[in-house]
Amino acid sequence: MKLTLKIWRQNSATDKGQMVTYPIDGIEGDMSFLEMMDVLNEELIVKGEDPVAFDHDCREGICGMCSLFINGEAHGPDRAVTTCQLHMRKFNDGDTIYIEPWRAKAFPVIKDLVVDRGAFDRIMASGGFVSVNTSGNTVDANAIPISKIDADKAFEAATCIGCGACVATCVNASAMLYVAAKVSQLALLPQGKVEAKERVLNMVKTMDEEGFGNCTNTGACAVECPKEISLDNIARMNREYFKGMISAE
């Protein structure tokens, strides 16, 4: 198929940036969206032009590195996939496709479609863990039975890939779904309960300091999340947060 691509080009964080139009031909339905971008870049390199920078790595929807805002939607029109899993069969011959980076104050652009998501790592470093050292002397893994229902819920929350689609989608550029997924996972498990209060207070504090917006319950994040992380997690985090506020030392 033949397509018209309108792609955000920005040389550096301080550059103003603009949309640039690229016609492209010979795209097949079996190609992934990023393979279509490879075809474009190969053409640009051979022509002596600057290829479009975009983040990607595993290309199987699990590393969370790819991050394109396609036709106004994070990871494009398909549901429950990342950009690397989006296939060109979802588009039609003659389509115009708009490709932009994640846009959020807390995610500054590095180049073109590549943004800096270091804020997510800093939130994790403020509490996204259980304080247990490696020793080989922890209790036996089966010493504490965990109800399958809680374990499954914790797992569902833990499938977050940290891509940032929730932030890019949110009108307030809020990171609530991302933070809630980690808070929920650990709050649901007995191992994580011990530090639950400090964890949620610290992670939310860092989230605010990093410049993410507030949650106004639009729910768009959960719709666009490639791993379908549920809004229930935000409710759980709010509950944890209030518990923490009221009863903290």
């Binding site: 863990f129 080989g136 922890t138 893994a141 039975p145 374990a151 914790a154 797992f155 996972q185």
Partner: peptide, 25 residues
């Protein structure tokens, strides 16, 4: 020999392994 400790360590960290209805791994 150390394989068993890995599972203990990961569960202690909050890794949500699959469980049976009785709550065990």
């Amino acid at each position: 020999e150390v394989s068993a400790s890995i599972i203990d360590q990961c569960v202690a960290q909050g890794v949500p392994f699959a469980r049976e209805y009785g709550g065990l791994l």
